[in-house]
Design a protein around this nucleic acid. Sequence first.
DNA 1: GCTTGCCTTAGAGCGCGCTCGAAGGGGGAG
DNA 2: CTCCCCCTTCGAGCGCGCTCTAAGGCAAGC
Lengths: 135, 135
Amino acid sequence: MEYTIAEVADQTGLTAHTLRYYERAGLLDPPERDWNGHRRYSERDISMLRLLTRLRATGMTIAEMRRYAELCRVGPATFDERRELLEDHRRQVQQKIAELQTDLALIEYKISVYTGADDVPAAMSGLPAPDLARP
Amino acid sequence: MEYTIAEVADQTGLTAHTLRYYERAGLLDPPERDWNGHRRYSERDISMLRLLTRLRATGMTIAEMRRYAELCRVGPATFDERRELLEDHRRQVQQKIAELQTDLALIEYKISVYTGADDVPAAMSGLPAPDLARP
DNA sequence: GCTTGCCTTAGAGCGCGCTCGAAGGGGGAG
DNA sequence: CTCCCCCTTCGAGCGCGCTCTAAGGCAAGC
């Protein structure tokens, strides 16, 4: 099964403009064309795009995704390097999650201050009071 | 205790340029000046900056932070609105964490594929195989 | 007195990741 | 044939969040 650019845009949540941009940027192999020059995306293209969108959502840069795509183009010989790239990225995602969780605790502390409840989470009792009021 | 812009830059990890930018952008009340016009940041300024950096790190935009700062300037009458703003942001952070955790599972699945181990996590067994090799 | 170094301002510039505009073609419906 | 819609390419433009430059002030050290 193959798809037009509009169908792929629909399926991936990217715009047609962005799909062409990704192709230009070297993130995606140029798909086949039909008789009149329109792109026909394969299932494989779609899976690659789905992976790319998740990598983007987790903060991978275009340059890193291009690197990954280049390794894919080379072939199975690059499995190790691709794994390393993904392992690096995994670490970054894990760190980001940890950071967000810490920051979430601070946000919840601030909310509790504004709520006027005195049931401040015990874990926060030692926090340097952040700009409590500015009355 | 008061601090120079360089000391604050040091403490917050922001640059002096960025500190002036935040002030211009309305995120921070203009600090006091000493006799020769240099900024003297108070402890209160520092706490606000520390909060702002965590809000930035969790994806709050400059515009939203400005809104928060404006509410702070108005006074205690805006406690409710500040709480709502932070509650909205909390929801966004929670969603982002959830998304990252889902995406992390996909990344780990891909790593397992490249590792060649056949001990693919059971939870993943139903995944549409993402671009396994492109040989 | 000169150099060094940190500070000031206003405003321009940059990197990223899109996002859009212009100009044009081909095909199907009425 | 006309209208409309979707596609094409190339290249410019944009929004965000900084980041830096230029031009200059003041003060301490040599």
